[in-house]
Computed example of a mutant assay.
Amino acid sequence: MFDNILYQPTLVNILTREISNKLLPQSMLFVGTPFSGKMTSAIEVGRALMCTESADWGCQCRNCQLHRQLEHTSMLILGQGDFLPEIQSALDVYSRFDKVFSKFVVRRAIRKLTIRFHPLLWEGEEAKMKKFRNLLSSVEDYLDQFALEAPRLNDKDLEKTKKGLLEDCQKLSGFVPKSIPVDQIRRIAAWSHQSSNNPKVVIIDKAEQMQDSARNALLKILEEPPHNVFFLLITNQRGSILPTLLSRLRIYNFPERTIEQQKDILMRIFREDSGEYESIKEYFYAWKGLAPGTMKAYALEFRDAIKNDIVDYQLPDLAGRDYFRIFLEELVKTFRQDLHNTADVDFLGFERTLNIVKDSLFSVETLNQNPSLALERLFFNLKEGK
């Protein structure tokens, strides 16, 4: 159980004990920095709950076979995700290593995207489904080429498949709702009350991005969860979850792994041993075209311009919403480091800064504001509040 969760021993021990002793709560919140293993752990909780035998990683019961490839119908995953970098890196592993494991990595990375289009989540929305149905079907066809028993693609066919698959996955990811809609939560509520031979697992990624109406609908479910239905919410920041929701969740904190641990994970999973990347985050950001350390440098310059009242400071060019979030993550990390290095700590000032940053992210990801305009407003708001 949890053999694939690396360098989170405390959490693994707690979750293993709770599952083994049937003490696992039905409502959980996994909190931690990006790439600390939250989603992988949530998925593994689902597999352990549904396993009919030992719950070892190599268990061959039917439930585990389906679950390892994210094909079990008793698990739902919803919410935004950064799908393309993981899919690109998985295809890179496949291109370099002729192993069944590489096919598994590809299939699992793609399934993390396609599972967001489970028919139940889109029930009754024929007009929306019509827009992505052909794309989803195309991705599934590509996925068949990476079946564990399928012959290996030659180099020419692989390049053609990679190109078409990545194009389709990028288009398909655009149909994942930016914020979790209330209709999906209501459908989950109805589904969760239907009888089943298996436990049911609902994983909500980026839980802080729920619409108000969706959050209220979820609260009603969590007040008295149906028997044998488990809800796992995932977020990078506990403070972004409303207290009313927090009160109904047991919180599991995922500490950030050390640089050496992250390098080992890159080697063991993605066969990355160049030594170029100091973190899993840097490795995945590289697939977005970001050189290691780029956003950290931007964040430091931004912070210095605010502190030193630099008049002719040139704001960084953040071309997309993904880059905006990455920049803000580095900026918060920079402010937090400043807090640790300061003798006279201003906790209230730090909290104000965090709230300004959160509002900026909300304006871009939920209100669809232009990232460049939001960055400019953020700069001046932080200067005024320093």
Rank of each mutant, 00 (worst) to 15 (best):
K296R: 11
T52E: 15
N134V: 10
L143Q: 02
E126A: 15
Y323F: 07
P119A: 02
P225L: 01
D304S: 14
S247C: 12
L232W: 11
F379E: 06
N308F: 15
P243D: 03
L339M: 14
L24P: 07
I265W: 07
S20I: 09
V345N: 05
A343F: 12
L246Q: 03
R108Y: 08
N381R: 05
K206A: 14
S173L: 04
G385R: 10
E223L: 02
E208V: 13
T353S: 07
G320V: 00
E224V: 09
L266A: 03
F254G: 05
E330C: 12
Q337V: 10
N308S: 14
E224K: 05
Q145M: 14
D82F: 07
L78E: 09
I251S: 12
G46R: 01
F230N: 00
V100T: 11
L66S: 06
S27A: 15
R336P: 01
M28T: 05
S274F: 06
F146Y: 13
L290S: 12
K307L: 12
K103V: 13
L11C: 03
I259P: 08
I5T: 04
L361K: 01
E140Y: 07
W57Q: 13
M129Q: 15
L23Q: 12
L23E: 06
S279D: 09
T161S: 10
L378M: 08
L49Q: 04
F284G: 01
I204H: 08
V311H: 06
L218I: 00
F335A: 10
K171C: 05
L135C: 07
K358R: 14
Q88K: 14
E276I: 01
I203C: 10
F83M: 00
I356R: 14
Y142L: 05
K358M: 13
F132P: 08
L222A: 08
G124W: 07
G289D: 11
T73S: 15
E123Q: 12
P225T: 02
K383N: 08
K160N: 06
R248C: 01
L11Q: 09
L246R: 01
I43M: 09
K131L: 13
L165G: 03
R96D: 03
L158W: 03
I110H: 06
A42Y: 01
L49P: 00
